[in-house]
Amino acid sequence: MTATAISPTPTTTRAQAAPNAWPRFAIRRGGQFLVSIAILITVAFLMLQMIPGDPARQSLSPTASPDQVAERTQELGLDQPLATQYLAFWKGLLTGDPGQSISLRMPVEDVIASRLPATVELALLTVLVVLAIAIPVGLLAAALTKGGRRRGLELTFNSASGLIASAPEFLIGVGLVYLFAVNVPWMPVAGRSGPASYVLPVAALSIGAIAALSRIVRAEAMDVLSSDFMRTAAGKRMPVLRKYLRHALPNLMTSTMTNAGLFLGSLIAGTVLVESIFAWPGLGMTLVQSIRAKDFPLAQALVVVYGAIVLMINLAVDVLLAVLDPRSTIKDS
């Protein structure tokens, strides 16, 4: 070992928390959230404008008369100047009245109100299942395979989790439908009625995420386990469980939560597919239907709702991280 000589590392005094770190963090992160929401709404608005051709005509059957097209154009507000449309879009969202669904013939806000709870339930349940399984599995896999031992187990874990993680939710969903609908009809495979109906959609959403997250937890855990402070812990000759739970786990939480946040986002997006498979009456199924039916007002509103949910999750994860690891707030701001 040679002299790891003097490097310009920041002194400790600078690393210490400034007394006003929390308000600064709140302002910075809150501001970021609001700007993101504004951009999201703008993008959702522009979505309609960027459609090549005439959206009004597309949303009608090919045989529609010019009068019907004109009427739909007016209904969508496309006859107004762009600025007016933009303002109206904002106003609609802020007042909770984003317009009328073309395909369902009912107010968009009513559609959302009736479909939102199903999606949120599904997503939350899935998140709990994913975290409860992926973290222990990943940590265990790391503990068993660190330093290149148990190559066979490592290969098995990597290929199994890789296989499952690369199989998309909807394929797992289809597989589950096939298995339970055709071969072992124990569980309901469609609709939302009673606790049993949650099992398959949650499984379809979580299996892939568990595989992917446990891979990440394992990789992070391998890093943590090979760190100097784990060597210190090993030097204290403590029980294995204490070594992993007390010394390794807290250091995994930051990266795990960051990744779990990303997964949560894609999980929310995954509901779009899974809901379609299990005929789950949530926002995802509605979004797909609205796009296929060219029901633009509904699609736009749903994009905003989905995007806002994802942004809120990101915000929640950041706040959680700041609580868990005070250094992260200070580092970023």
Binding site: A269, V272, A299
Partner: peptide, 20 residues
Amino acid sequence: NFALAFPGLLITVVLSVVFG
């Protein structure tokens, strides 16, 4: 970073509205 805040599938779905 802003685009990254949103899951790929959601972006895909939105873009498929635009691109047909």
